[in-house]
Computed example of a mutant assay.
Amino acid sequence: MYKLIALDIDGTLLNTERKITKDVFNSIQEAKKSGAKVVLSTGRPLPGVTPLLNELNLTDDGDYVICFNGAVVQEVKSEKVISNIEMSYDDFKTIYKVVKELDTKVHINTPTNVITPHEVPSKYTLHEATLNQIPVVYKSEDEINDSITFCKIMIIDEPKKLEEILKVLPKEFFDNYTVVRSAPFFLEFLNKKANKGTALQALCENIGIDVEHTIAVGDEENDQHMIHLAGLGVAMGNARDSIKDIANYITKSNNEHGVAHVIDKFILKKI
């Protein structure tokens, strides 16, 4: 019996219109009523998830959320932090040196804002801030220091440019950080110990659920760790091929209520 389902948001929970369909909403409500935990697991900070948690009624005692691609796990109502794995100022300096060499752009995600060292922020930085309802703050390179909470660091650029950047990143970046694509224009760097899989493991240990009794559903590379770890790893029909390759099950697309299909089949046993 599956006791917890971890759901990615963009490309998974939300359809291409960035909406939760009626079928998905209803299945999530039924899953929660049945006693299953429904946990949103996302690269977003808490402010970017809160409207969805409210919409889905996932704000009671015992409801949890995974943010920043696994860097932060917390209880929703109390905002009590269960796990918090940050990066450092030294990490930023290392990554920013390469960013300048490759003529690309970067921003820092903190719990409350997006910090950019570029006087003219990337359109993708603005997209990130709008999506998550948080401000963009400009700080010169000299103003960025270890007083900042570095939740994650992102290189942002056109998809083709990021493909080229991935080919030339120093090998030690992959050794020292969790490096994931969360969108075609986002390349994310997290603490090596932080990913959606380690976050799911930490949550399960905290609330006493065997990870074999969990389902994880996603579509992008930043979902791979939790899909691999969960008792049932599910790829969306619209997922990258690399995610489909590691999944135990492939559901329908996000425009075909794929999350509802998973819940109905494996938790509610309707199918």
Rank of each mutant, 00 (worst) to 15 (best):
M1Y: 05
K3Q: 14
L4F: 00
L7C: 13
D8A: 02
D8M: 03
G11V: 02
T12I: 06
T12V: 10
T16N: 15
T16M: 04
E17A: 15
K19R: 13
T21K: 05
K22W: 04
D23G: 10
K33W: 02
V39T: 08
V39C: 03
L40D: 11
L40H: 08
T42K: 11
R44Y: 01
P45C: 10
L46K: 07
L46I: 14
G48C: 02
T50L: 15
P51S: 07
L52E: 06
L52I: 12
L53F: 02
T59Q: 07
T59D: 06
D60F: 04
D61V: 14
D61F: 02
D61N: 15
D63Y: 01
I66E: 08
C67I: 05
N69F: 01
G70R: 08
A71R: 11
Q74S: 08
V76Q: 02
K80D: 10
K80H: 10
V81L: 00
S83Q: 13
I85L: 07
D91Y: 03
F92E: 08
F92R: 08
V98K: 11
V98F: 14
K100A: 02
E101V: 07
E101H: 12
D103P: 05
H107G: 06
I108L: 02
P111Q: 06
V120H: 10
S122D: 15
Y124A: 05
T125C: 09
L126Q: 15
E128K: 07
A129P: 09
I134K: 11
I134H: 07
I134M: 13
V136M: 03
V136H: 06
V137Q: 12
K139E: 14
D142W: 01
D142F: 01
I144E: 04
N145Y: 00
T149D: 12
K152E: 04
D157M: 00
K161R: 15
K161D: 14
L162Y: 03
E164S: 12
L166A: 14
D175F: 04
T178K: 04
V179N: 04
S182N: 06
S182Y: 02
S182L: 02
A183V: 04
F185Y: 15
F186Y: 15
L187H: 05
F189S: 03
F189I: 06
A194D: 10
A194Q: 09
N195H: 12
K196D: 12
L200C: 07
A202I: 07
C204N: 10
C204H: 09
E205F: 01
N206E: 15
I209A: 03
V211E: 12
A216G: 09
E221L: 07
D223F: 01
D223H: 08
Q224E: 13
H225P: 08
H225N: 14
I227V: 12
H228E: 15
G233I: 12
R240D: 09
D241I: 11
I246Y: 03
I246V: 15
A247Q: 11
T251M: 01
K252L: 15
S253L: 00
N255G: 04
I263E: 08
F266R: 14
L268D: 12
